[in-house]
Nucleic acid binder design. Structure first.
Lengths: 147, 147
DNA sequence: ATCTTTTTGGTCAGAATAGATCAAATTTAA
DNA sequence: TTAAATTTGATCTATTCTGACCAAAAAGAT
């Protein structure tokens, strides 16, 4: 588990304790984990993107901060939102994130099934540029059945 | 017994001791057995495929790994049988038939979802000769989750 | 009020790490 | 002998981490 995962885990834990909202200083956080500040940005863009269900707001200058908020939509809105977020093409990582984000609406087994259905191993027959397009199509069709 | 068999045997033994889940580094494993890393991929694709009852997940980059999970095959020989019947490629009609054949084990909604996931409209991004191969991969991965 | 300095955070490219793929060469089995 | 299975290495792709340089906001000076 690299430093990115460790920081992400820390933020996750904190978010749980603070009811979904969290404000930190980029510099402090970086120092706390002994990494370069841009590492924090890396963690935010790869693990706390809107696709993952988070909103990140920042402010620079004195007293600057990074605020992370976990968003929670309604059931059908959430699925609709997900479908819209998919677009014509989506990579495995983003797809998994989007699906995981539906765990409040879908059973664990269902989530597992969808993730497996659009995993790279399921789609290994389709080569990369095309693979992501196929993935988008499969997820959409599945989600449309659930609405 | 070639190196492939030796590695496969080792993984099998380890899986028995670790309750069916196992995480290794491809590079380490290769070094341990004095072979080239791609040999590990060969072992995985020829002996730990879904047809053999395993799920393989991997991650590249720093802290990368290969995770092998043996799927629990209980009384669901029917599903296993279906997986084996699929082959490397399957057309929409046959796929639907096979899936419908599982209605004694799966809920209607589940059947609907799977059929949708492997419908021609879901896979429209993949052109015909390829499309059937993708379909085979998707069905297999889904069914493996259900076992 | 305006200008300057200081304090934060943002971006981007490159290096490092680690697995994937493909095809040629070799070995094994029918 | 021929066809299938195995082995290998060259090359590709993905993920993470770092540092140099950039931009905005606040605080302080004039």
């Amino acid at each position: 588990m690299g430093i990115a995962d460790i920081i992400a885990h820390f933020l996750d834990q904190t978010l749980k304790q603070t009811d979904g909202v969290l404000e930190v200083s980029r510099g402090d956080l970086a120092q706390q984990f002994g990494c370069v500040p841009s590492q924090i940005n890396y963690v935010l863009t790869t693990r706390f993107s809107p696709e993952h269900g988070y909103i990140v707001e920042t402010k620079r200058g004195g007293g600057g901060y990074i605020r992370i908020t976990r968003v929670q939509l309604g059931q059908n809105a959430l699925i609709m939102h997900t479908i819209n977020a998919i677009g014509d093409s989506i990579d495995a990582r983003s797809a998994t994130a989007l699906i995981q984000n539906l765990r409040s609406v879908l059973s664990d087994e269902f989530i597992r099934v969808i993730v497996a259905a659009v995993s790279d191993s399921a789609l290994r027959a389709a080569v990369p540029p095309l693979r992501d397009e196929v993935r988008a199509g499969v997820i959409k069709q599945i989600l449309l059945q659930i609405i």
